[in-house]
Nucleic acid binder design. Structure first.
Lengths: 346, 346
DNA sequence: GTGAAAGCGCTAACAT
DNA sequence: ATGTTAGCGCTTTCAC
């Protein structure tokens, strides 16, 4: 009875959780040795290691990583900011990043900005306050203050999606303007002449803007008249497709091919055309960006620009791990490229 | 020159980052006062507060939350574990949880388990080692060790999705078996008699199992013959629909209505039927669980059980905040309910 | 291979 | 309203 009581007292100094010191006493070694064993068992003799191991099992010790982070100045946490996680195009990189980092002991703090640069700035500050070891941000539309804070944190930074010549630190993405241009060229080659582009102007989404620009420029270069540009204030959703379709079909517009900067709207458009009996692509050709799982399955199957979105997160994670290991990267700019998947809608 | 040098030296004690002590010296107060000001400016006199504020701005001080967490034993981090974030049905609660907690200063560590209880156990241990203030886990299929570790952590726990009479701590979810039963009843009322159910047996997904069971039991109760059960090893995807359709149409089976425990497969099935000219629902009725955004948009529109999936995360967050505020909850079990959205496929 | 001492940057508890 | 003292639980550094 009193034995049990004594042991309990010993373990409940502080906050009642088992500490490294408790394990050390049980194993008749110093806390130092336990700490060493935990990080690299080879540094400890076999017998000592065995005693420590069984002591950990008996006490149910779970190392306090908060204390470890403070002492070592490494949190083993990486932050990632995306506009939303509800859209698989952004969820995929998050999951890939987490999967890439986990084997190395890192975990992921996720922030969703809703395309709001002000909120993004707040979240970045909060994450840096938690002393994350690295940070991944979507896009290049950071506020001046966010850039300032990021630079002073002196940690590895990866920008995702928007390829830029001068990243804050590292960047992995695709050439959005080139993707837009590729779609315009494709439409032109197929004989479409009255183009339209559906986009949105949410402040943080420079990617959509780049696609729209690339598309329109290429159309001009090919001698086509300026594409009809329909711009929404917020990222578009499938449910808006019917009203968009009405816009496109307004008398006098005679649009024969439309490029949607996001997949959901294009899919909605294909479905809406079906319901209204508008022949795709004969009466209206459709192409989009993102190539979601659904694109090849709907009928007619959707032409879309494919992005290796899983690779975005994986490569970002690998770059970070390299840097954490103290290596300097030769390639700080990684262009993942894209593929125009030509299917039945164009 | 030497002035600048001196100031830099003063700020670079330790790790070269500005500390609370630096701010305090600049503002001619103690570190404690700065700490107080940061947490509740009202506790500090107006003049002192102003000096501190400007000192923070000048030095660019960003409080070290790791140190704060160690000292106060509160990390302001909540963990959430989901099978995958790529499926919006699980991404939605994550985003809702983060949005609910952020205004209170909490951030979210996300772990994806891929329906693997072993991996789930590992991630739970890792998160508890980071001394999260609360944890949200998907489902009730935790390993014995995971349960043990969770209980000893003495933090609020929310289980998501699977309603259970005896949660570890709190639970918010839906009655999956009842949802399955509702679909069976609906099929019966519409006159369908040869039912099938498409499920999967991934170890961690007890929700799908409950739906399948509820469906089959209700069918029996209604006097129908045992539904044909087609079970995949892993969660089903849209791309598997064509081969599933072939299964369902095998001579002699004469299935006239099928319930898919996940939306993606059902959507794939509707699209596959279109391609093959199989009339839905005349030749085959289809219903599913999840009611994704796409369900009402495809044609024919998909009958599906609607779950307020955003609310799952929001309510979990609210329960945690209550507990963090020291309140005891009267309702530890929250049933969110469901709605069978009857559309054109049944 | 192992241990002792010092400190990471903050907050809690107790002063005044 | 503000300051002082004493940790939080670990890792780092240096010693043996």
């Amino acid at each position: 009875m009193s034995e049990i009581f004594r042991r309990r007292v010993r373990q409940s100094r502080g906050r009642g959780q088992v500490r490294i010191e408790d394990v050390a006493q049980e194993a008749q070694v110093s806390a130092q040795t336990v700490s060493r064993f935990l990080r690299d068992p080879a540094q400890v003799s076999a017998g000592t290691g065995e005693r420590i191991r069984s002591s950990i099992a008996r006490t149910g010790y779970l190392p306090n990583r908060v204390a470890g982070a403070l002492a070592s100045n490494r949190s083993f946490v990486v932050a990632i900011l995306v506009p939303t996680i509800a859209n698989p195009i952004h969820a995929a990189p998050v999951e890939a990043l987490a999967d890439t980092l986990r084997p190395a002991g890192y975990h992921v703090l996720v922030g969703t900005t809703g395309y709001d640069p002000g909120l993004e700035e707040k979240i970045i500050e909060a994450f840096l306050g938690r002393r994350v070891d690295g940070i991944v941000v979507t896009g290049t539309s950071l506020t001046a203050h966010a850039i300032n804070v990021l630079e002073r944190a002196r940690i590895p930074i990866v920008q995702l999606w928007d390829l830029t010549e001068q990243p804050l630190d590292m960047v992995v993405g695709v050439d959005n303007a080139a993707a837009g241009a590729a779609v315009a060229r494709h439409f032109f080659e197929r004989g479409y002449r009255r183009l339209a582009v559906v986009s949105h102007s949410a402040a943080g989404d420079t990617r959509s803007l780049a696609r729209t620009d690339g598309f329109s420029r290429e159309a001009s270069r090919l001698g086509l008249s300026e594409p009809l540009a329909l711009t929404y204030l917020r990222p578009t959703e499938m449910a808006q497709a019917p009203s968009l379709l009405a816009e496109l079909r307004r008398p006098g517009r005679a649009v024969d091919a439309v490029f949607c900067v996001g997949d959901p709207m294009a899919i909605g458009l294909v479905l809406a055309c079906r319901k209204l009996g508008i022949a795709v692509p004969r009466n209206l050709a459709i192409a989009s960006f993102g190539d979601s799982d659904l694109a090849p399955l709907i009928s007619p199957a959707l032409t879309s620009v494919h992005i290796p979105r899983h690779d975005l997160g994986r490569i970002a994670g690998e770059m970070l791990l390299q840097r954490f290991a103290g290596k300097t990267l030769d390639k700080k700019i990684v262009d993942l490229g894209f593929t125009l998947m030509v299917r039945e809608t164009s």
